[in-house]
């Protein structure tokens, strides 16, 4: 055996992460091995805390430690504008621009007919309920520029059309 049992176990776990191959996993495992015990403990604690404390916001679907999330709770944000994204990392990308001050709705994916992901697998009913109950003036569909993203945007447009009028710019916005 090339590695000791514990090292082999850590390399195998690290290899399962995206973008980490055998060499990178080996390098990370050896780095962790070289860390002082309390530093390695902090890393393990951070991973455990992440799994224990973080969940999805019941209102928008963002990753959060408090429910509703800080974005949904913030009085400085305009609840009348709703930006619909596919995944929480899309929300983070828009937040990093610091240009959007409205609320979000995370769908948790996109419609993909070929892989059997239909609208019922996404948080579309929650979006409809939110649009009906909340004072939403404008919905921005910020799905990805792929065929699946376009299909999702077109489906949402059809579903949300009865709730308001279409703004200029066609399928990327619905106004109540």
């Amino acid at each position: 055996m090339l590695y000791t049992e514990s090292l082999a176990k850590l390399v195998a776990e690290l290899k399962r992460m995206p973008g980490i191959g055998n060499k990178s996993a080996e390098r990370l495992a050896l780095y962790i091995l070289g860390l002082p015990k309390d530093e390695a403990g902090k890393l393990a604690q951070a991973i455990l805390q992440l799994k224990e404390r973080i969940f999805y916001c019941s209102r928008c679907g963002n990753i959060t430690e408090v429910d509703p999330c800080t974005i949904c709770q913030s009085p400085a944000r305009d609840a009348g504008i709703l930006c619909v994204v596919e995944w929480p990392n899309d929300l983070l990308a828009i937040e990093k621009t610091r240009g959007f001050r409205g609320h979000y709705h995370v769908l948790m994916g996109a419609i993909s007919p070929k892989t059997n992901i239909g609208p019922e697998a996404l948080r579309i009913k929650e979006l409809q309920a939110r649009v009906s109950s909340q004072q939403v003036r404008e919905i921005i569909l910020a799905t990805s520029p792929t065929l699946e993203g376009e299909a999702t945007a077109m489906y949402l447009y059809e579903v949300l059309k009865p709730l308001g009028r279409i703004t200029h710019g066609g399928r990327i916005g619905v106004c109540r």
Binding site: P113, K114, L147, E150, A151, M154, Y155, E158
Partner: peptide, 16 residues
Amino acid sequence: LKENLHKLVSGLYLTE
């Protein structure tokens, strides 16, 4: 074909 949901899904059906 890509600007209409029904046409788009029909096209995807043909390719599948």
